[in-house]
Amino acid sequence: MSEIVFDNVWKEYGDQIVLEKISLTIAPRAFVALVGPSGCGKTTFLKMLLGEEAPTQGQITIDGVPLVAEPGPDRGVVFQRYSVFPHLTVLGNVLLGKELRAAPVTARLFGAARRAARDEAMALIAEVGLAGSEDKYPAQLSGGMQQRLALAQALIMRPKVLLLDEPFGALDPGIRADIHVLMKRLWHETELTVVMVTHDMREAFTLGTRVIAFERPRDRPEERERYGALLSRDIDIWPPRIAGAPLSNTPDQDDLVTPLDHGQDDLAPTQGV
């Protein structure tokens, strides 16, 4: 399993303190949603977990092992943009992880090994609802389909942790609701701990088992540089969602219809934690 522990983590860029005193334990198979106003360090938090950034102080461990300071195959990621490779087809994008793992020098598979990997990739492509689009390039796909592809591409590595950086932020509400259903199913069916950064409160409460909010308690202009964001709220969703045991009668899904005059994007700031 994969327990992620943040032990008194600080992050500073030069004089600017971004995050302070982050101590946090993320249980295996949790689905953690990170929310907070812009510029409060949500993405920095995710980057540290990804290994792109190292904490200035403190330590991050996964299963007790300190995190190496570069991204690796145990942590998959889906960004809002640029998650898929424009020069590879849908199939090529999903296949890439298998090829990289199996062939260190050529990074390509041939013959029987390729056929086996191809079958697995095709199954995963069908799983995320992209069957029939295998030979298309990402530029020929809609935004929602590209994000489905990015999920499939990350999941073929069977990562322990999946990191999502506002993955569905650029999609319109209908498409977003569809992809939420997919995301939930993948989380139930795969051995995954998910950490998701989102601007969308509704998304956070729809998908998460736990919602964590970052906030700068001292946000006056003269204070802004020397005080970073803290972990201000930590809410466990009730009734608890348990990975692998989908519930049918809880508010597990998006509303079927979003009122036209009250889009989801409008809700987040007014409800701001």
């Binding site: 990804l50 690796g72 640029y82 992880g97 990289l100 990350a154 590595m157």
Partner: peptide, 10 residues
């Protein structure tokens, strides 16, 4: 992001 993504694919 692309480079990072490739790194997470090993």
């Amino acid at each position: 992001e692309q480079i990072t993504k490739a790194e997470t694919l090993g």
